[in-house]
Lab assay of single mutants.
Amino acid sequence: MMAYMNPGPHYSVNALALSGPSVDLMHQAVPYPSAPRKQRRERTTFTRSQLEELEALFAKTQYPDVYAREEVALKINLPESRVQVWFKNRRAKCRQQRQQQKQQQQPPGGQAKARPAKRKAGTSPRPSTDVCPDPLGISDSYSPPLPGPSGSPTTAVATVSIWSPASESPLPEAQRAGLVASGPSLTSAPYAMTYAPASAFCSSPSAYGSPSSYFSGLDPYLSPMVPQLGGPALSPLSGPSVGPSLAQSPTSLSGQSYGAYSPVDSLEFKDPTGTWKFTYNPMDPLDYKDQSAWKFQIL
């Protein structure tokens, strides 16, 4: 009977010793046993002879290597770790002494450095960015050149030099007046198309007034536009458009034309069986010896 009264063996659950049927240790109110408190290391007290050895090595170098620390530790009968900690504390003490010396050398008012006064946003004049500046400075420094007289040679050079070769001289006033084509001369031969040399188009003023001019072949195509416009036809070669000034309004060009419109200028042929003959000019830059190549039959 006494065997049943004795408590059973101890069981360990999660490293906790349980005594038989008792489960009081598993209750929430019972805390787990805490780790033992780490003991504080005792402070090391250095003797005068030990301090002399350490100070002598510190005077040589503030960062001794492990071999120098072990050698000193053997002399003063201390572990190497204590020597390492002593050098660490000695360097910190040396830095603190240097900072105190710097503070003593500075004057009393030198510690508080005078800061520059901050400028207020409204006091300083700042350039306004509302208006974009002129990058080319046209509004201040540029002045347009004065327009020359209508009959000045410089204007003629600016007008005619675009179309004339570089080897030719500017046309005088008398020749510029001949550039304007007359109405009857352009409409006299509506079906004849003559190819003149390129030099005649640039230099010869008579080429624009003769039936064999460069633009005589364009007349049949330009004249039928007159009834559609409801007024006189516009002429690209009329009046002052080739003269001194090219800047004319469309209203000033509306009254200039080749001449009176005639039914002869239409595109319809009077004789459907007729042929169109292209007159060959020996001055043509295209060297075609066979003139029969310039004739064709309209079917």
Rank of each mutant, 00 (worst) to 15 (best):
M2K: 03
M2H: 00
Y4S: 00
Y4D: 00
M5R: 03
P9R: 12
P9M: 07
P9D: 00
Y11I: 08
Y11F: 13
S12A: 09
S12Q: 09
S12T: 15
V13P: 00
N14D: 01
N14H: 13
S19A: 07
S22G: 07
A29G: 07
A29I: 15
P31W: 13
P31M: 12
P33Q: 03
A35G: 03
R40G: 13
E42T: 13
R43K: 11
R43W: 13
S49V: 09
Q50S: 06
Q50K: 13
Q50D: 14
Q50N: 11
L51G: 10
L54F: 11
A59Q: 02
T61Y: 09
Y63F: 12
Y67W: 09
R69N: 15
E70C: 13
V72Y: 15
A73G: 09
L74P: 14
I76D: 15
P79D: 03
R82H: 15
W86C: 13
W86V: 13
R90P: 15
R91F: 14
A92H: 15
K93T: 14
K102P: 07
Q105Y: 02
G110I: 08
R115P: 01
R115S: 01
K118D: 02
S124W: 06
R126M: 02
S128K: 05
P133S: 07
D134W: 08
P135H: 06
G137A: 05
G137S: 06
G137T: 09
S139I: 03
S141P: 02
Y142C: 09
S143R: 04
S143N: 03
G148R: 09
P149E: 04
P149I: 07
P149F: 02
S152K: 13
S152A: 09
P153R: 15
T154F: 14
T154E: 03
T155R: 08
A156Q: 02
V157G: 04
V160K: 07
S164N: 02
P165V: 12
S169P: 06
A177V: 12
G178F: 13
L179F: 07
A181D: 01
L186G: 01
T187P: 06
S188N: 05
S188T: 07
A189M: 13
Y191S: 00
Y191F: 09
A192S: 08
Y195R: 02
P197W: 12
A198R: 06
A200S: 11
C202V: 08
S203C: 11
S204F: 15
A207I: 10
Y208L: 04
S216L: 14
L218Y: 03
D219K: 14
P220T: 06
M225C: 06
M225A: 02
P227E: 03
P236H: 10
S238H: 08
G239H: 12
P240Q: 09
P240H: 07
P244T: 04
L246G: 07
A247V: 09
Q248I: 13
S252M: 09
S257A: 09
Y258T: 03
G259W: 13
Y261G: 03
P263W: 11
V264N: 02
S266R: 10
L267R: 02
K270C: 04
K270P: 01
T275K: 08
T279G: 01
Y280C: 10
N281R: 15
M283A: 07
D284E: 03
D287Y: 13
K289Y: 10
I298R: 00
I298E: 00
